[in-house]
Design a binder for these strands. Sequence first.
DNA 1: AGATTGTGCAACAACTAGGTTGCACATCAT
DNA 2: ATGATGTGCAACCTAGTTGTTGCACAATCT
Lengths: 121, 121
Amino acid sequence: MDERDDTVETVDSVLAALSDPRRRQLLDLLAEQGEATATTLAERLPVSRQAVVKHLATLDAAGLVSVTRVGREVRYAIRTAGVNATAQWMAALADDWDRRLAKIKRVAEAAERDSRSPRHD
Amino acid sequence: MDERDDTVETVDSVLAALSDPRRRQLLDLLAEQGEATATTLAERLPVSRQAVVKHLATLDAAGLVSVTRVGREVRYAIRTAGVNATAQWMAALADDWDRRLAKIKRVAEAAERDSRSPRHD
DNA sequence: AGATTGTGCAACAACTAGGTTGCACATCAT
DNA sequence: ATGATGTGCAACCTAGTTGTTGCACAATCT
């Protein structure tokens, strides 16, 4: 397994990686083709190969792509696990916030009631 | 509904907003307190009020916080809708990728089979 | 009115990110 | 062996981010 606390620790890098439009574009291209090299990908984009390489390195660091060397070429492919994990993390986060806010609201309302009828009248 | 294409268009800004640790920290603080001013928040962080204000502006632009002026103070509060929407978007995206990759895999395997028994023997 | 407190605005410094180009090195085909 | 193709490394530029500080302005309290 060796998952460790990737789930929490990597969310940071996944969010950062996905926040760039060009990187999302790269992931789209990879989803289209299943596998591709930086050189090929660069041909389909208005940027240099080097720019693509850098983006792919970021995606790799975030665990969003897999890298495989075949002879003289390096093939990249999407790994959906990271995105899925982050999506779940976000959903849980929003949920947590919602619960906390609901609690705060209840407390506030209770205080409001108390201040109106101080109970020891 | 008035949602327009917020769902797609805003994902960009939500991801960008969430990709910064300090902003996530701010959201956490807001979830704790329910509502707070930039001045108060800055007291709990190792940065100036102005830095906090800028972050809150970013969060506001992404629709992640609501802003309410009360007298001379400006109160910020979390809005979970944006995060929820983005979480769903991500989940859908990962799903789409998975499907596309599965399809590619099937095609590749079919081709493999064909090449082994070319049918017109 | 006068002091206090909370914001808003603007200029500035430091750092990071996305992108470029040039060249060296490795691998494959002829 | 040679040429073509694909990568890797490094220096560099530009623009945007994050953070700062100083000061003016608005609202509140005594």
